[in-house]
């Protein structure tokens, strides 16, 4: 298992390099001169040339790329923002916590509420509760995030005055963004949990468990739910990447200075280093989430775990064969 994780981590490196290359290429292809932008409206030709040299824009594109990669690898140097003139790594570090906090909380809320409602719907299938929950789930998964955000602001801030409409501060500031961010994933998880649970509940081994005299609660949670986990993990994993990558909608509606907002501003100001750094960090998180999802699979299902382990042993065998051939 450890070997599998290490292998997966190593595979991440070319992935991230690829991401870097693509972002770099796109940034170079779109119009707009960052040196002119950095200088603003008043500058001379000499100042412009100096600026280009200072930013390394006068060098060959390939060299620019390798310089950048080298900086990232050796000391997490993501360059200096053209816009704020501060190190991009620092800007990201100061914001990543906010996005992660938002993401982790909304993920917890998604899992707790989504799975609970999903199981309830499955256990009480075709009841009024089931119909209400599934109908709401369909409505909310169809509702666009910003609309939900605005509506919740109107209700909970404007009409009820329970929570502020935006900004950062105590826990009250997190409630609405977290809920809005979690709402669409929740409805997906509810539907997936329900389907998956219904599928599992009809399996023979659930009947076996009941015939053994296992109490209904344990039948649902120990036997059915753990088997229903695989599709649920898939959905949650996919949603989590969406949470990390797509938080900028919620962040900008609720004025939360997270990494999504940083990316948005960076794109607007053609702040190449900030764009590159942000996207790199985001793709890193997506890779990590995918890895965690796969590891979670292994813990949820021993058959998948044995595949991972099996893959490893097969690799060893092949190596052994080669050695045999040499001998």
């Amino acid at each position: 298992m450890t070997k599998y994780v290490v292998k997966r981590l190593l595979i991440m490196i070319p992935t991230l390099l690829g991401v870097l290359l693509i972002i770099f290429a796109i940034n170079k292809m779109i119009p707009g001169d960052p040196a002119k932008l950095a200088l603003g409206s008043n500058f001379t030709q000499e100042a412009y040339e100096a600026k280009r040299a200072q930013m390394g824009l006068d060098k060959n594109v390939v060299i620019q790329f390798f310089d950048y990669v080298k900086g990232v690898v050796t000391h997490f140097d993501l360059g200096t923002s053209y816009d704020t003139k501060r190190p991009v790594s620092g800007m990201i570090l100061s914001r990543i916590g906010i996005t992660l906090k938002l993401g982790i909380w909304s993920c917890i809320v998604t899992i707790v509420i989504g799975v609970a409602i999903g199981i309830l719907s499955a256990v009480k299938k075709y009841s009024v509760i089931d119909y209400v929950m599934t109908t709401l789930a369909i409505i909310f998964s169809a509702a666009p995030g910003f609309w939900v955000a605005l509506m919740s602001m109107m209700v909970f801030c404007l009409k009820l005055g329970w929570f502020p409409a935006g900004g950062m501060g105590g826990w009250r500031y997190m409630v609405l963004p977290v809920l809005c961010m979690a709402l669409s994933p929740i409805s997906l998880v509810v539907r997936m949990t329900r389907t998956s649970m219904l599928d599992v509940i009809n399996q023979d081994y659930i009947r076996t468990a009941r015939a053994k005299g296992v109490a209904e609660r344990n039948v649902i949670f120990k036997h059915a739910f753990r088997n229903a986990l695989i599709p649920i993990i898939t959905v949650i994993g996919a949603q989590l990447t969406m949470v990390v990558g797509g938080s900028f909608i919620i962040e900008s509606v609720f004025s939360i200075p997270g990494i999504g907002m940083l990316l948005l501003t960076a794109i607007n100001t053609r702040d190449y280093p900030a764009i590159q750094g942000t996207v790199l960090v985001l793709s890193f998180f997506v890779c990590i989430i995918n890895l965690l999802t796969d590891i979670a699979y292994a813990y949820a299902d021993p058959r998948i775990k044995s595949q991972y382990v099996g893959g490893k042993s097969r690799g060893l065998k092949r190596k052994g064969e080669k050695q045999d051939a040499k001998a």
Binding site: M153, L158, A165, G166, G167, S252, S255
Partner: peptide
């Protein structure tokens, strides 16, 4: 600081 005037106005109203 707000990124969106709607949110700011709501916070003002409330």
């Amino acid at each position: 600081f707000y990124s969106d005037e709607t949110a700011m106005y709501m916070d003002y109203q409330s």
